[in-house]
């Protein structure tokens, strides 16, 4: 998902404290920043919320790529608003992570030097305008699948950030689907572009949920802590079940020959993505990994003088104001 393969950190606290903590979570209580929490819980959350935040921020790049080339002023305004929301999502989440004792600059540095990851999906390029449709429809659609249950996660600041984010996501997916609808009703070439976008984004979207984690120890701990709410396979299945009929409505073909409806289970059977490609992308070898990090690095470096000048200006203003109070 936006947070993929989050390893849980081992915790070696007093068993009684741990049991009391688990009891609070089991009772549905929210854990707040100043409450006692196991070190493993804190560290795992920093990793997960940080990765989620980085995904929102890096996730602006593939769509930002098309803002100046949107086909109409209306589409441009829609896309701009959508990308601005993603910046907001990144900011809500960074603040939630900061309540756990990590600073904003540390988080940024960990993204830039590769200690922290962002979702694999944003390492794929957006080649045509139809990709703006596919991204909103599929990528934000997949994000919603995982973010909706996270509104009930045990860590208060994270849960509250997710509530805000979920309120805004539905617009993202709908504007994407709207772009797809216009494309499939357009010329033959436009419909071909829409199909091509679906072909390229289908499997990367399925990868967003991460590899099967049925037997993972980390998932079990993270689920007990209510940091992770569903297994990756559950969410992936839910995504396929909701998305296939939408593709049918558009008259597009999901690029999976094995896809079929299973009467017995009441779910679609579908092909798994190529997990070796996924691990390769996570390792840094996707089509856009280098480009994405370079772009963020450039923004960080080029913004340095602005960050410093803002501080200097505020200090000067403060000094001037305090002088004017004293006669």
């Amino acid at each position: 998902m936006y947070a993929q393969m989050i390893k849980s950190e081992a915790t070696k606290e007093d068993p009684e404290m741990l049991a009391a903590f688990q009891a609070r979570i089991d009772a549905g209580e929210k854990i707040e920043p100043k409450d006692w929490m196991p070190e493993g819980y804190r560290k795992t959350l920093i990793r997960q919320i940080g990765q989620h935040a980085h995904s929102e921020i890096v996730g602006q790049l593939p769509e930002g790529n098309w803002i100046t080339r949107a086909p109409t002023l209306e589409r441009k305004a829609n896309l701009l608003a959508k990308v601005q929301d993603e910046a907001g999502h990144g900011l809500y989440l960074y603040c939630a992570a900061e309540t756990l004792g990590v600073s904003r600059d540390e988080l940024t540095e960990m993204l830039l030097d590769g200690r922290m990851k962002y979702s694999s999906i944003f390492n794929y390029p957006t080649l045509t305008w139809a990709d703006m449709g596919a991204v909103g429809w599929l990528v934000d659609g997949a994000a919603i699948m995982n973010q909706v249950p996270l509104q009930r996660t045990s860590y208060g600041p994270y849960a509250r950030a997710m509530v805000r984010i979920c309120k805004e996501e539905s617009f993202h997916q709908r504007q994407g689907f709207h772009v797809m609808m216009a494309m499939v009703k357009g010329t033959k070439d436009q419909k071909r572009m829409a199909q091509d976008a679906l072909n390229r984004f289908w499997y990367p979207a399925l990868m967003m949920f991460g590899p099967s984690d049925k037997d993972s120890v980390h998932s079990a701990q993270n689920m007990a802590w209510k940091i992770k709410m569903n297994t990756n396979d559950e969410l992936r299945q839910k995504f396929v079940d909701e998305t296939v009929p939408q593709a049918e409505y558009l008259g597009l073909t999901v690029p999976d020959d094995t896809l079929n409806w299973n009467e017995e289970t009441g779910h679609y059977n579908f092909a798994e993505p190529d997990w070796s490609e996924f691990f390769d992308v996570v390792k840094g070898n996707g089509p856009c990994n280098t480009d994405r990090i370079n772009t963020r690095q450039k923004a960080w470096d080029a913004g340095k003088w602005v960050r410093e000048a803002m501080v200097a200006h505020a200090e000067k203003k403060r000094a001037r104001d305090s002088r004017s109070v004293r006669p």
């Binding site: 608003a81 601005q84 900011l91 809500y92 603040c95 904003r104 805000r164 803002m310 200006h313 505020a314």
Partner: peptide, 24 residues
């Protein structure tokens, strides 16, 4: 309370809050 943000001073914080927390 809706959340938090970073800013150099109060005026800057209000401006950022407008963009981050009241887009709708």
């Amino acid at each position: 309370h809706v959340g938090s943000l970073h800013a150099v001073d109060a005026e800057h914080a209000i401006r950022n809050a407008r963009d981050v927390y009241t887009r709708r």
